[in-house]
């Protein structure tokens, strides 16, 4: 058992080292969300007002945070494809270590890098004037980690059944980006057509964004208990799927 923990720790460390060494990945990961935040927060924020008051910038900030975590996590999962292409995956697959440990090490590592990206974004947000109450930070990080590990597992699952990055690009365009748009990250879902509301209910990111909004702003659409319940269920599904699909990778 102890041996498996060591393997998980070292695989986690590998993800962190790779992330910290890749300056372009760090900058790139918060580049697009940063422009979204500025464009929406200051562009649209100037011309719309929210029901019940509050600034649009404060409303959209948790959504943008969700965007950072979503994309950061899924791309961390994509590292399985890069490992396949560069041959490194074999090295881990033939080691006397359980496949589940390999998945867990990768998932924890990927989630940690996504949370680091999220922290950078929070820092940027604070500079831009988003109100981030300090006492909410611990709970916020917990929610961020929960969201990240669930989506990293989704990324690992997808990467396990794919041969190259081209297919992954397709997934990003048709699954990940819509997930972001339908999550209510950038507009309140109460005022959209019913069909879009239903789409948002089946979008797991909806509950992640909602939870972060509750933590930061005090209130949102659902209750924190419901959000966390759905997220934990989603986490259970994606991690099981990742473990199952990763185990089936042919050497």
């Amino acid at each position: 058992m102890n041996q498996e923990f060591i393997a998980i720790y070292f695989l986690w460390k590998r993800e962190i080292i790779r992330f910290l060494r890749s300056k372009s990945r760090i900058i790139g990961s918060i580049g697009m969300p940063f422009f979204f935040l500025v464009m929406l927060g200051f562009g649209i924020g100037g011309i719309v007002s929210l029901e019940g008051g509050g600034s649009y910038l404060d409303f959209v900030a948790p959504g943008i945070l969700g965007m950072v975590l979503l994309f950061g996590s899924v791309f961390s999962g994509a590292i399985v494809i890069i490992d396949k292409q560069f041959g490194f995956l074999k090295e881990t697959l033939v080691a006397p270590v359980r496949r589940e440990s390999i998945v867990l090490g990768k998932a924890l590592g990927g989630a940690s890098t996504a949370v680091i990206q999220g922290m950078l974004m929070i820092f940027v947000m604070a500079i831009l004037g988003v109100s981030i109450p300090l006492h909410t930070i611990p709970l916020l990080f917990a929610v961020m980690f929960l969201v990240s590990i669930a989506f990293v597992s989704l990324g690992i699952s997808l990467a396990s059944i794919m041969e190259d990055m081209h297919g992954f690009q397709l997934i990003v365009n048709f699954l990940i980006f819509p997930m972001f748009l339908f999550s209510g990250a950038i507009f309140p879902l109460d005022s959209v057509p019913e069909i879009l509301q239903y789409l948002s209910y089946i979008d797991p990111l909806t509950y992640g964004v909602d939870a972060m909004r509750i933590v930061l702003m005090g209130t949102a659409r659902f209750s924190l208990a419901l959000d966390l319940g759905v997220l934990v269920a989603f986490l259970a599904v994606t991690t099981s799927l990742a473990a199952y699909l990763f185990r089936r990778i042919e050497n």
């Binding site: 080292i17 790779r18 560069f86 041959g87 490194f88």
Partner: peptide
């Protein structure tokens, strides 16, 4: 110990 036909190193490390 195994040395594969194709490279299996992590180049970033």
């Amino acid at each position: 110990g195994i040395v594969f036909q194709d490279q299996a190193l992590d180049e970033e490390l």
